[in-house]
Amino acid sequence: MRPRVVAGVGGGHGSPAVLRRAAAEARLRGAELWAVLAWDAPGAGAGGRHLTGPAPSLSVFREDAAERLRRSLGAAFGAAGAGVPLTGRAVRGTPGAALVDIADDQDCVIVVGTGSRGAAHRLLWPSVARYCLAHAPCPVLALPPSPLRAGLAAVHRRNVLRLRLDTRELTDRDGV
C-alpha cells in the first residue's frame, strides 16, 4: 500500500493551510493525500446539540459534511488541484479517532491544525491534535494558527467594542 498523508479538515479558517501543508508533505514523501472531515449528527454524544421537532435523516448530515469538505478542498487548491493523488473522506465519528483510524500504520503522517485554544474552547471541545499525538501509530504534524489570525481577532474585538484603532499598531514595529 502506498504511504498516506492524512489531513484533518475542520471546515474552518485553518483548513486550507492544513491541506496545503499536507499536500506539500505528500509530494515530499511520494504519498497519497487523504483529506478527512469527521462529522456526527447534532445531539450525538455528551454535550451535543439537541434538535426540536423531527430529526433530519443521517444522509442530510453526511451530504452537509461532504459539501464542507468540497468547499475546503476548493479553498485550498482551487481548480489546479492538490498536485498529488487525493482522496476526500467525510466520515462519521469524532475527529481525532477518525484520523487515527485512517492513519493506521507507521508509513502514514497526520497533519492537523491546533486551532484557537481559548479556555472556554478547551472545556467544550477536546483537542484533536492532542488526541492524535497520544494515539497515532505514526508521526503527527500539528500546525499552529496563523499569527495574522490573532491580529485580525484583536481588530475585530476593538470594532465590536467601538474602541479607537491606532493603525500604527498594525504595522511591523521594526519597519520591515
Score class of each variant (00 low, 15 high):
D104F: 07
R157A: 02
R168T: 00
V140K: 14
L69W: 14
D105T: 06
L58K: 10
H13W: 12
W34S: 06
G78H: 11
L58M: 15
A150H: 03
D101Y: 13
V100R: 10
P85H: 11
A31G: 13
R29P: 12
V36G: 04
G113Q: 08
R168D: 02
A97G: 06
T171Y: 14
G93L: 08
A153P: 12
H156C: 01
A55W: 15
V5R: 02
A22N: 07
L124T: 05
G151M: 02
G151E: 04
G88Q: 03
V112S: 00
P54D: 07
H121G: 00
A98W: 15
G11K: 00
G78V: 00
R21V: 00
L163N: 04
L163I: 03
R130A: 05
L123C: 02
A17Y: 12
R62F: 00
A80C: 00
P3I: 05
L143R: 04
G14S: 09
A154C: 04
I110D: 03
H121Q: 13
A22R: 05
A65Q: 10
L86R: 06
G47L: 12
A154K: 06
H50I: 08
D172H: 09
R68H: 15
A22T: 09
D107I: 00
R20C: 03
V140T: 15
G48C: 07
A75H: 15
A82H: 08
G11N: 00
G8S: 02
A38K: 06
A90D: 01
C132K: 09
A26E: 11
L123Q: 11
A82I: 04
C108E: 06
E25L: 10
G118H: 07
V9T: 01
A65P: 15
G8L: 01
I110M: 08
R157H: 10
S57I: 01
R62P: 05
S15P: 15
R20K: 14
D174R: 08
T87H: 13
G96P: 14
A41F: 15
A90Q: 03
C138R: 11
P54M: 03
V84W: 14
R4A: 02
A98Y: 13
G11A: 01
R89Y: 09
T167I: 01
G45I: 06
A134T: 04
H156L: 05
V140A: 11
V160P: 13
D166K: 01
R70C: 03
A66N: 08
G43F: 14
D64S: 02
A97K: 05
P3G: 03
D64L: 12
V100C: 13
D40E: 14
R70V: 09
V100Y: 13
R173I: 01
D104K: 05
C138V: 03
V109F: 05
T114K: 06
V84K: 08
L19M: 12
L161W: 11
A79Y: 14
A120W: 12
W39Q: 02
L86Q: 08
T114L: 07
G8R: 00
G81S: 03
D166V: 00
R62H: 11
S15Q: 09
